[in-house]
Design a protein around this nucleic acid. Structure first.
Length: 903
RNA sequence: GCUGGGGUGGCGGAAUUGGUAGACGCCCAGGACUUAAAAUCCUGUGUCCUUAGGGACGUACGGGUUCGAUUCCCGUCCCCAGCACCA
């Protein structure tokens, strides 16, 4: 053992040993309980960033902890290696996406290895390699067979200048992110997966996992899927005096929108308020409106067109949009009251939710209320507060200052008067069903998952178009449909694959005639929907994985990753698992038992604004003036420019990133990992500050020096001694106190891991090492009991340090145990704590007078209440506050405190 | 606006769910060692008052419950995140 702590030396040494001994190779073992620790797989952009380091340090700490607890741990990693940046690199720099991707993976794997994360490297999966994406295609065909994959016409964001389809983000603000010209909508046939067929299960199965998932993620998924219970109601439509024009069935709209040529279907969650309807309001894009456009008065048509254009513009989330609309002149008949209502178009009714049509009940819906106020429509209250008299309601409604959306008792509703909202909702829905003008209905916000991408760097969709047979799925045995070596990359137009005849020219799997392949590729969320199953059987060529292997390892016991994947990725993965359940591949429907979302790693950024965009200056090139509290007063660039500053997510483009390699080079992997977990609770945002990491190094050096100091005294190998002291050796004084601290710490750290806290156990380790440092007895004068206590403390410290600083721990452990086989091969376990030893034989009782701390008495924790009372009352400092006063009562909390109440 | 999570020293953060607020670390100051520096070690470090012993105040703010509140209840303010006319 070196006198000094050389991080790099021991890190390289143990990384080599781990690799040579296959220390982290996981194999099925029915003797041991399994634990599947999973972190979200990285996109191989070229470099690891500190967010990755945080994520993987936490996952690795947990994996090590579970190993030490005797679990058979699966801890794998892979590469989310399909996606746009590879293709952008091809467009910009002419590099082949495959070459670019493989090189990046190589770099990042090296970085992860230098951090010493304990992965089973044999199990890596690479989304972009045919042996993996073959099974993206396999799943697609299965879903096609199940009727879950289908093709339909939809609108996409389209930039006509660039001839490119854009994602919503790329079309943000209604302008193309690349060329700045305005974006239009374009119809395109796209493949969809029927996530909506699973919405109820996605929502209902949350009951299974809600204890193990952050409440915020559960909530966001619920909001995202947006289930609401209500009813459809059909209103007959009349064109006042004229014939009504036929309303065509338009694709892309809930099929239930169009129930007939002369009816319009609305969705409501409040059918009980239907007698209060004053109008039917349709979205400007509603098919009934579209069909009658030519028929409307000029100003009506103009207004509708205007609203439609406004709707197409990107929404400004800051401003509240004012209600707008126009009476179309059409009339609708309320099927309950038979009242004739005007049909309006309103800008607040959205075509893509429900049926694109609502009944407007201003008295009981705030939006309808605002609409009615603006256009002077009547407001009729039909739900009363239960205590109010019937006669007062109409008058009151006129005076309403806002809508009354609560449940209550029905009034002004004929037959239904006096019923509660709850009753009326059920009975009125039944009535509508019976009379065939409506039905109970549940609507969702969630749409089907569009997976077509007009890109090269993704898994080809295994479909063939044949003039004779139509749309034909590729045969399973002919998978994978492989990407060609390269394609013309322009970054514009349709999929690059459409320009590669060798790719798209094929024969029909059915009739062998000439046919053309689908040239779109799949969304990369497909890859990440099932990769964690592939780890359990990474080289299977027949199936995505062997169900028996997956049955041992999955479901994932702990998933750790960024909060930003709370909705999309985690819904798709849950959806995929449910499909797999239906296919009989897995015996459960929820893939992740527990989820931990870590906070972002952020840093200071400096920038100036030009043309509405921020131009960033790397912090290293900025002169910063700070106040005594460390807050920034001003910042100047090299050329004297005054800069603005913020705290933002670390990224290359903002120049505020920290290079993990640099951290490892300067401080060592162990210090970097330990510090990033220590610096803040895992779910908090972490503002990176370089000074802190030095504290991490100092701590490891301190531990190292303690080991060096005691090495000679502890020279007898651990194995030669029993783990319990021989009878007859009395452990007392400092040794006893140290043992106490050791056992208290063992308990604390164990508890912390179980509740997924990583910052507090590091603090506890620091305390324990401080306690060893403060032991007060030199190795030269140590008794056998002293040596025992120190050995116990150092051994526990070493083992409990393993999850945070595994290299250092391995090296220290090898010294303690006298061999270099490693912690795992030695069968080391997380130390056991003893309640008995952790108990202090003297504790400090605070003594309060009237709830204020006045003194402390030190005595045995078991001291009786009577004795505590006596001791407290006799205390000189206490008497200053009690003398001459009447003692009302004395409260004693066992093992906690004494509180004397005086008058 | 709605929903969720927060507000504790100069900073990051602890606090066994009602019982000594500020663990641990960073920063800063002083000291030891050194020719010097680095490293290391020691001491101090919530605010105010006090010659000392000590005292008063203190967990966003205002109330309340309690012997006792960072913790529970009511009200207000502020911050962060998500959603945003979802009928």
């Amino acid at each position: 053992m070196d006198e000094k702590y050389f991080a790099k030396k021991i890190e390289q040494k143990w990384q080599k040993i781990w690799e040579e001994t296959g220390a982290f190779h996981a194999e099925i073992d029915d003797e041991k309980p399994k634990f599947y620790a999973l972190e979200m797989l990285p996109y191989p952009s070229g470099n690891l960033h500190m967010g990755h380091v945080r994520n993987y340090s936490a996952g690795d700490a947990l994996a090590w902890y579970k190993r030490l607890r005797g679990f058979n741990v699966l801890h794998p990693i892979g590469w989310d290696s399909f996606g746009q940046p590879a293709e952008d690199a091809a467009v910009k720099r002419g590099v082949n996406p495959r070459t670019w991707t493989e090189a990046n993976i190589e770099t990042m794997r090296g970085q992860l290895q230098r951090l010493g994360i304990s992965y089973d490297w044999r199990r890596q999966m690479y989304a972009h390699r045919p042996d993996y994406y073959k099974f993206d295609q396999w799943f697609f065909l299965k879903m096609y067979e199940m009727g879950l994959a289908y093709k339909k016409m939809t609108q996409v964001n389209w930039c006509s200048t660039d001839q490119a389809t854009l994602s919503n983000e790329q079309a943000s603000g209604g302008i193309c992110w690349r060329c700045g010209n305005s974006v239009t909508k374009k119809d395109l046939e796209q493949w969809f997966l029927k996530t909506t067929a699973y919405t109820d299960r996605l929502l209902d199965d949350m009951a299974e996992i809600e204890d193990g998932w952050p409440a915020s993620v559960i909530k966001r998924q619920q909001d995202w899927m947006g289930r609401s219970y209500g009813a459809y109601v059909d209103f007959e439509i009349k064109a006042s005096g004229e014939t009504l024009f036929v309303c065509p069935i338009v694709d892309g709209i809930t099929s239930s929108t169009d129930v007939g040529k002369d009816r319009v279907r609305i969705f409501t969650t409040r059918i009980d308020t239907i007698y209060g309807a004053n109008a039917i309001v349709l979205a400007a894009e509603h098919p009934v409106i579209q069909a009658n456009m030519d028929n409307f008065a000029e100003e009506v048509a103009a207004k509708i067109a205007f609203i439609r254009t406004e709707n197409a513009k990107p929404a400004d989330h800051e401003a509240e949009i004012e209600k707008d609309g126009i009476d179309t002149g059409l009339k609708a008949i309320n099927p309950f009251s038979h009242e004739e209502l005007p049909v309006w178009v309103g800008n607040y009714v959205m075509m893509n939710y429900g049926t694109g049509a609502v009944m407007s009940v201003p008295a009981h819906d705030q939006r309808d209320f605002e609409f009615a106020k603006k256009f002077g429509l009547p407001i009729r209250q039909v739900i009363s507060e239960p205590h109010m008299e019937h006669a007062h309601h109409t008058m009151q409604a006129l005076a309403l200052e806002q809508a009354f959306p609560d449940y209550g008792v029905l009034v002004h509703s004929d037959y239904w008067n006096g019923k509660t909202s709850e009753q009326a909702k059920v009975e009125m829905t039944e009535y509508a069903e019976k009379h065939k003008f409506g039905e109970g209905a549940t609507t969702y916000r969630l749409r089907d998952w569009g997976i077509s991408r007009q890109r090269f760097w993704g898994s080809p969709i295994p479909i063939v178009y044949c003039d004779r047979c139509g749309t034909v799925p590729e045969k399973f045995e002919d998978l994978p449909v492989e990407l060609p070596e390269t394609a013309p990359f322009t970054g514009t137009g349709e999929s690059p694959l459409a320009k590669v005849p060798e790719f798209y020219e094929t024969t029909c799997p059915k009739c062998d005639g000439p046919a053309r392949r689908e040239t779109d590729t799949m969304d990369t969320f497909v890859d990440s929907s099932w990769y964690y199953y592939r780890y359990t059987d990474a080289e299977n060529e027949i199936l995505p994985f062997d169900p028996a292997m997956a049955a041992y390892w999955t479901p994932v016991d702990q998933y750790i990753g960024g909060d930003d994947h709370a909705v999309m990725h985690l819904i798709y993965a849950r959806f995929w698992t449910k499909v797999m359940y239906d296919l009989g591949l897995v015996p459960f429907a929820e893939p992740f038992k527990r989820l931990l979302t870590q906070g972002m790693v952020v840093g200071e950024t400096f920038f100036y604004e030009s043309g509405g965009k921020r131009a960033y200056i790397p912090p290293a090139e900025v002169t910063v003036e700070r106040d005594g509290k460390g807050r920034i007063l001003s910042a100047k660039s090299k050329d004297g420019l005054h800069l603005k500053y913020a705290i933002e997510r670390m990224s290359k483009s903002k120049g505020n990133g920290v290079d993990p390699d640099e951290m490892v080079e300067i401080y060592g992997a162990d210090a970097a990992r330990l510090f990033i977990l220590f610096a803040a609770p895992i779910d908090n945002e972490l503002v990176w500050n370089e000074a802190g990491i030095e504290g991490g190094v100092r701590f490891l050096q301190r531990v190292w020096r303690l080991a060096v100091k005691w090495q000679a005294a502890l020279a007898v190998p651990l194995a030669a001694r029993s783990s319990v002291l021989d009878d007859g050796i009395v452990v007392a004084g400092n040794a006893k106190k140290l043992r106490q601290k050791t056992h208290q710490t063992i308990k604390r750290i164990g508890d912390s891991f179980e509740s997924l806290q990583f910052n507090t156990p590091v603090a506890a380790l620091m305390e324990l090492s401080n306690a060893i440092g403060d032991f007060g007895i030199d190795p030269g004068n140590a008794t056998e009991a002293d040596v025992f206590a120190v050995r116990e403390a150092l051994t526990a410290l070493t083992l409990m340090l393993t999850p945070f600083a595994p290299h250092t721990a391995e090296e220290l452990y090898s010294v303690l145990v006298g061999n270099e086989n490693g912690i795992i091969a030695n069968g080391a376990r997380f130390p056991e704590y003893s309640e008995e030893l952790a108990r202090a034989d003297e504790i400090e009782f605070p003594v309060q007078v009237n709830g204020k701390l006045r003194s402390r008495i030190v005595t045995a924790p078991e001291t009786s209440n009577e004795d505590l009372e006596k001791l407290a009352l006799a205390d000189a400092k206490v008497r200053e506050f009690t003398d001459g006063k009447e003692i009302v009562k004395i409260i004693i909390v066992p093992k906690r405190l004494v509180n004397i109440v005086v008058a």
